[in-house]
Amino acid sequence: MVKLTINGVAHDYDGDPATPLLWFVRDELGLNGTKYGCGAGLCGACTVHIDGVAVRGCLTAVSEAAGKSVTTIEGLSPDGNHRVQVAWRELNVPQCGFCQSGQIMQAASLLTENPSPTDRQILDGMQGNICRCGCYQRIVSAVRHASTGA
């Protein structure tokens, strides 16, 4: 039995402890804001936080989250008003929107680690989160906006 906390709620998982966290979050808990993209940790659509650090849910086994705090996009801000989410809306970042929950989760983790990143640090920190629509300039602008308010 694996015990973990997801979005502040304690959960027990009695399945295979090697199951990807992504599948537990989506299939067992019904939190489908975390997306399946590539299944190989290359696109970032499945990004969640474990103890505040961005990880790829498709590569992280449920057992790796045992006793830790997992945050999905649904738990980042229950009312959708985390500063990164607000910046995303104010700057109209998404085009298709598929990658955006992973982008937002990566950006929130980056700003926790570095509250005032340079554009180069934003690009480096967001590397590995792919946007098929190519909204990278808007993503960098939104991360900068979330960090500075301007």
Rank of each mutant, 00 (worst) to 15 (best):
P94L: 12
G125I: 05
C133I: 12
G75A: 13
L91F: 01
C135L: 12
N81V: 14
Q121P: 01
D14H: 07
H11Y: 10
W88F: 15
T5A: 04
S147E: 06
T118G: 09
T112L: 06
G57C: 10
L29K: 04
G37V: 14
Q103A: 15
R26S: 08
C131G: 11
V62Y: 00
D51G: 11
K35P: 09
N32I: 15
G15Q: 01
L59D: 14
W88L: 14
R120Y: 03
P20Q: 12
A142R: 03
A54W: 01
L42N: 14
A146Q: 06
L29I: 07
K35I: 14
A10K: 14
A54P: 02
E64L: 03
G128A: 14
V93S: 07
H145Y: 12
G80N: 06
E74W: 06
L42R: 11
V62K: 00
A66Y: 05
R120A: 13
G41H: 08
V55P: 02
V86Q: 10
G57I: 13
L22A: 08
I6Y: 04
C99L: 13
D124C: 11
L31D: 14
T34D: 02
A10H: 09
C133P: 06
P94H: 08
N114V: 03
E90W: 00
T118H: 03
A18Y: 00
H82T: 09
T34W: 00
R132Y: 13
G37T: 14
I130H: 01
Q106Y: 01
Y13K: 11
G102H: 01
